[in-house]
């Protein structure tokens, strides 16, 4: 039975910059399909069918980045981590979990995303905590994702929380 997940390496990693990804230019069809999937079976709002701008929840990295670079010393960037951070490259223990769940998101928005925008995502380590739950000791992870556009304007900053047990 795991007594704790939180060793010094995990605790001291808070704030570490992990990776920088750059998206492909946002396409009108990606905005349209995203909105159709989210609003289905109702029709999506016309502004999204016309791709006036992307929904706030749109993921410009949904099908992978145009480029990805780890910012961690010694990491060759061969492992692209879309959601979260490369815990192995950070030297975290190789935990074996039965389940990994989305615990929540906290997002502050800046400017909207438009067709042709190229988004840069810089990920960093948030706070790792643990809590006893009905499935045993749970690890609560946080990764922070900061998106800017090609004009270096903030698009959004998201704190993603994961729950593992």
């Amino acid at each position: 039975m795991t007594e704790t997940y939180l060793n010094d390496t995990v605790i001291n990693a808070k704030g570490t910059l992990c990776s920088r990804s750059v998206s492909y230019p946002i396409e009108a069809s990606a905005i349209r399909k995203w909105a159709m999937a989210v609003y289905w079976p109702e029709p999506a709002p016309q502004k999204f069918m016309d791709a006036e701008y992307a929904p706030e929840d749109f993921d410009a990295f949904a099908w992978g980045p145009a480029s990805y670079a780890s910012l961690l010393p010694g990491d060759d960037s061969s492992v692209v981590v879309r959601h979260g951070i490369n815990e192995r490259a950070l030297g975290f223990p190789e935990w074996k979990f039965r389940a990994g769940l989305n615990g929540g998101m906290n997002c502050t928005y800046g400017v909207r995303m438009h067709v042709g925008d190229v988004i840069t995502d810089v990920k960093s380590v948030g706070e790792y905590t643990e809590r006893q739950g009905r499935n045993g000791l749970m690890l609560i992870t946080q990764s922070i994702s900061t998106w800017t556009n090609q004009r270096d304007e903030l698009v959004k900053r998201t704190i993603n929380t994961g729950i593992c047990y």
């Binding site: 989210v38 709002p45 929904p55 706030e56 929840d57 615990g103 929540g104 998101m105 906290n106 929380t161």
Partner: peptide
């Protein structure tokens, strides 16, 4: 998360903006 944003978009209309959303599952 997207459903919550759809709820907010309908409320704010075309000229409003979503500034911050914080959701726990």
């Amino acid at each position: 998360w997207s459903y919550v944003h759809s709820l907010l978009r309908a409320f704010i209309g075309p000229d409003g903006s979503i500034l911050r959303v914080d959701v726990q599952f």
